[in-house]
Simulated assay, not measured.
Amino acid sequence: MQTFYNECLEDLNIASLECSCHHKGHLIKHGFYTRKIKTPDGIMTLKIQRFKCKHCNHTHAFLLSIIIPYSQILFHDTLSIIRSNTMQDLDQLMIENPNIDESNVSYIKKQYSMHWKQRLLSENIQLDSSLVFQCFFHFKRQF
């Protein structure tokens, strides 16, 4: 996973990125932080690149769409949890990824109900691969 992340970072044209202050070409690399990700192969540590805008001094992280900010659970597992209708579905997910437990499932379902469910319904946004783009487009924030 780190190798793939690094390859995506190398392919990134930093000069083309726009800061939330709407200035392009002002981002510079500004260190990194580590994020633990729960995968079926174990808990992996990923070094996340940070950028700083020379214009407004805000910092930003380069995250792939499969990584949800502040979460150790990957996007596709989060969607599976939200979509699950039965305990059998959740049990299967926890068997496939033993690093996800009942407390993770409960937290994700609660956060979805409190913060996202009504927003997504109001814009008729589906729980599919377009979700990240749709959340940026409609709400100016990542799911």
Rank of each mutant, 00 (worst) to 15 (best):
H76Q: 15
H76V: 08
H76N: 15
D77M: 06
T78S: 02
T78Q: 13
L79V: 04
L79T: 03
L79W: 07
S80D: 01
I81P: 00
S84Q: 06
S84V: 00
S84I: 04
S84F: 04
N85L: 05
N85E: 15
M87K: 09
M87H: 12
M87G: 13
M87P: 00
M87Y: 14
D89Q: 08
D89C: 05
D89A: 06
L90R: 00
L90F: 04
Q92Y: 05
Q92H: 11
L93N: 08
M94E: 01
I95H: 08
E96A: 11
E96Q: 03
E96P: 05
N97W: 10
N99M: 10
N99V: 02
N99W: 03
D101I: 07
D101E: 13
D101M: 13
D101H: 13
S103G: 07
S103F: 12
N104W: 02
N104K: 07
V105G: 03
V105K: 10
Y107I: 01
Y107W: 15
I108S: 00
I108K: 00
I108H: 00
K109F: 12
K109N: 02
K109V: 03
K110A: 08
K110H: 10
K110E: 15
Q111S: 14
Q111V: 12
Q111A: 06
Y112L: 01
Y112N: 06
S113D: 15
S113L: 09
M114I: 15
H115A: 14
H115W: 09
H115Y: 15
W116D: 04
W116Y: 12
K117Y: 03
K117W: 03
K117S: 04
Q118G: 05
Q118T: 08
R119H: 04
L120S: 00
L120G: 03
L120Q: 00
L121Y: 11
L121H: 03
E123I: 08
E123C: 12
N124Q: 13
I125E: 07
Q126P: 10
D128Y: 13
S129A: 12
S129Q: 10
S129T: 08
S129R: 10
S129F: 09
S129M: 02
S129L: 12
S129H: 13
S130A: 08
L131K: 00
V132A: 03
V132K: 01
F133M: 11
F133Q: 08
Q134A: 11
Q134V: 07
Q134Y: 14
C135L: 07
